[in-house]
Simulated scan of single mutants.
Amino acid sequence: MTTIRDVAKLANVSVATVSRVINDNGYVNENTKQKVKDVVRKLNYRPNDVARSLFKGKSKMIALFVPDIKNPFFPELARAVEDISNKHGYTFILCNTDNDPNKEMAYLHALLQKSIDGIILVSNTMSTNQIKDMNVPVIALDRKISSEIISVTVNNKEGARQAVQYLRKQGCKRIAHISGPENVSSAKGRLEGYLEEVKNEKWFASDFICTGNYTVDKAFQSTKELLQRDAEIDGIFVANDLMGVGVLKAVESLNIKVPDELSIIGFDGIELGEITTPSLTTMAQPIYHIGKRAAELLIQRIGQPGNAIKSEEHKVKLIVRESTIERGGNNE
């Protein structure tokens, strides 16, 4: 394999001169520069990325941390981050953490050793102090970490309120909630929105809320227990679409007809919700757009570290599908 020393020897210059030409760093006269470039082409020399990152202090790499790659929401986010990273000449790295703080820290230590330029975090375990200690630009995506960390999120609380209001308009009288993990900011916001709409209803009790932990299996089990306990529930707001699949499976196992007897609305707007039976009504996030904005803000932070950047909160949108219907029998 050709090395930088081979290039320097054939061009009759020092290794330092070759390095300056390759990295476009420091003065080299035009004749020497052209001679080095000709030798690089002749030998088909490819600079070692690690060596270049050590020399320049930058790797042209951006990493995205996601907690569960099996949730279709996160590959859709990742596609946007990858597209913007590549557009700006950055290599994209995807790290699946499985909601495991030890795995998260192992990834971080490995990436920092490679002079990673910036990180986009979807995390509910990383603290503000840990992020500050990294000493690299960080953008929080989907979930807020703290007011000190720039974030790109959606209006989870208001979106949840709109979901419950929509179920009411369809004629639902007793609306339950399958919630996400207690320590995840997006789940907290959706729970708060639900509570603001129903907490003063005469029928409401705390057991109308069951955790689904953002997984299909847990949502399936929680929904079965919920509906076996209270057969009068006629509407369910589910904190994400992946859990919505579990809810639909549970309802089918109990021979409850959707949407004639029970209306279901999810949150996220992933493509999976379009192919369920029935298809899932949802409060859709602009998934690609928020991934795109997180990447753009991170690249801006990398290139202009002194510039002030504000957090962003984007709106969700109601998408009506087959899992909700007016009790009179007319589709919305």
Rank of each mutant, 00 (worst) to 15 (best):
T223D: 04
S185V: 02
A140K: 01
W203S: 11
K114S: 09
K144N: 09
S186C: 11
N135L: 06
E192N: 10
I149T: 05
N124E: 09
R143H: 13
V154R: 06
S222P: 01
P181V: 00
D142E: 14
R143T: 09
L111D: 05
L121G: 03
N183A: 04
L191A: 04
I175T: 02
G171L: 04
S151W: 10
C172K: 00
L141M: 08
H109A: 13
H109T: 15
L191D: 01
E148Y: 10
V198D: 02
K199E: 13
D142H: 12
R161I: 02
G180R: 01
V154N: 05
I116K: 03
E196Q: 10
V216R: 06
T215D: 07
F220T: 00
A110E: 13
V184Q: 11
K224D: 08
L167T: 02
K202C: 10
S206L: 14
N200D: 15
R174A: 08
H109C: 08
S186M: 10
V136F: 11
N183F: 13
K173V: 07
K224S: 10
S127R: 08
A219F: 11
F208C: 05
E196W: 12
V216D: 08
G189S: 06
S179A: 00
A163G: 01
D133K: 15
G118S: 08
K173R: 12
A140W: 06
A205R: 15
T223G: 01
S146A: 07
S127L: 11
K173M: 12
T153P: 08
M134F: 10
A106P: 09
R174C: 13
K224G: 04
K114L: 11
A160G: 02
K202Q: 14
S179H: 02
Q221C: 06
W203M: 12
N183Q: 00
G193A: 00
R161G: 03
A106H: 12
Y214A: 01
F220I: 02
K188A: 06
K188L: 14
I116C: 11
E192L: 07
I145W: 13
S147F: 14
R168P: 12
V138F: 15
V154M: 09
S185Q: 10
A187P: 08
N155D: 11
G189E: 06
S185E: 07
T223H: 09
M134Y: 13
G180T: 02
P137A: 13
A176D: 08
A219V: 01
N213Y: 10
N124K: 06
V216L: 13
L111W: 13
K169E: 15
Q170N: 07
T125I: 09
L141T: 00
K132N: 15
N213G: 01
N135M: 10
K202M: 13
N156P: 05
R168F: 14
N155H: 12
F208N: 04
N200I: 06
I175K: 00
E201V: 04
A106V: 05
K144E: 07
S115G: 08
T125G: 11
K188Q: 15
V198I: 00
T211I: 05
K169S: 15
W203A: 09
I150G: 08
L112Y: 12
